[in-house]
Amino acid sequence: MGLDKRTDLLQQGTLELLVLRLLRTGRLNGWDIMQRIRVVSGDVLSITPGALYPALHRLEERGLVKAEWASSENNRQAKFYRLTPVGRRQLEAERETWERFAGAIEAILRDA
């Protein structure tokens, strides 16, 4: 793997958390998710499709999301992803961890 391996690893968890969060409201296909990430995070997180799709497949492999083929808005077959119950629980757990972590960071930054 290339030189950006380290950053990949750091972002991998974040990216997966983000994907799970986006899927909470319903099923989405890869392209939809990509658009929403762009909207949500602006250019802060430089996430490419090249990173997103492997992340989706990893989540599927771990049983956190489930994939199905369905018609998209432009009437073409696309692969849609949906949270599984396991994924939902994982999201809650991760979010708590994340919030605690983010809170701690924020507190430190405020004090400094």
Binding site: W31, P49, Q77
Partner: peptide, 13 residues
């Protein structure tokens, strides 16, 4: 399926 999925993405882009 993987090819199909990625092609869809590229076409939308």
């Amino acid at each position: 399926q993987l090819d199909e999925e990625l092609r869809y993405h590229l076409e939308r882009e």
